[in-house]
């Protein structure tokens, strides 16, 4: 973490406030807390912010505020972050079927890791993952904390179509495709729950700074949950996060 946050140029309507140059939970927490403060403060001229691993991209309206004024304001808010109370993080349970048509690359990941498919699924479901950020496509979480034992490089040739809900591995990252898109991640499973719904507020199920775990389900349970999701009767399981 830098001693003082750095401000970096982002054109004539945006700038970055950067706290460090690493992927680390402490940095993420700093970003997330400043984001929460910004949401509550309603700063004049601040249009929106994109929180990521170690920085926030601040979009502003130069006709309403000067960048200098805004940077000063953010700097002073940042210095007083310790004074504020923040909500406790939660853990969201993601039910997923591993292998078969749901996870066509599970076998490959197992072979690459010198494990059985069962062991890969077991390792993948035994970790609580930090949601570092949402980005790239709507509702897409970037998760940290996957065991290096199942780390596997991306596909050599990306698929032109990866189904919504697919759970994948790329290097030592794991993630979920929130919308259908092309992609090169190794797909090990699929969840029936929807991570992105444009008609809900907020539209994303997950929030940066919270956590997820994966729970293995059967194809029968997948079908049952999928129906409940469609009817709007499925309740995602969320519990408070406990450190350690």
């Amino acid at each position: 973490m830098y001693d003082k946050p750095r401000f970096l140029a982002g054109g004539d309507k945006a700038f970055f406030i950067e706290f460090g140059n690493a992927v680390a939970p402490a940095l993420q927490r700093r970003v997330q807390r400043l984001m929460l403060v910004i949401r509550n403060e309603k700063i004049p001229g601040l249009v929106e912010a994109i929180p990521t691993y170690r920085s926030l991209l601040i979009h502003y309206d130069p006709l309403q505020t000067s960048p200098k004024e805004l940077r000063d304001r953010l700097e002073s808010l940042e210095q007083r972050l310790e004074d504020s109370e923040f909500p406790k993080p939660t853990v969201t349970e993601i039910p997923a079927v591993y292998g078969g048509e749901y996870g066509p690359d599970l076998e490959f990941v197992a072979k690459h890791s010198g494990l059985t498919p069962e062991e890969v699924a077991q390792i993948h479901t035994s970790t609580t993952y930090l949601i570092y950020m949402l980005g790239f496509l709507p509702g897409q979480p970037y998760l940290g904390g996957m065991s290096s034992r199942i780390a596997t490089p991306r596909l050599e040739t990306p698929r032109t179509r990866v189904l919504r809900g697919s759970v994948g591995i790329a290097g030592n990252l794991t993630g979920i495709y929130a919308v259908e898109s092309p992609g090169g991640w190794q797909i090990i499973g699929r969840t029936p729950i929807r991570l992105f719904n444009p008609h809900k507020e907020p539209p994303a199920l997950l929030q940066a700074g919270n956590y997820v775990t994966f729970v293995r389900i059967t194809p029968q349970e997948y079908t049952r949950i999928e129906e409940m999701v469609q009817q709007g009767t499925y309740k995602v399981k969320e519990t408070p996060w406990c450190e350690g």
Binding site: G11, F16, T52, R54, L57, F136
Partner: peptide, 10 residues
């Protein structure tokens, strides 16, 4: 780089 936000015109 470690992924960060992308402004218009980047």
């Amino acid at each position: 780089i470690i992924s960060d936000g992308i402004p218009l015109g980047a």
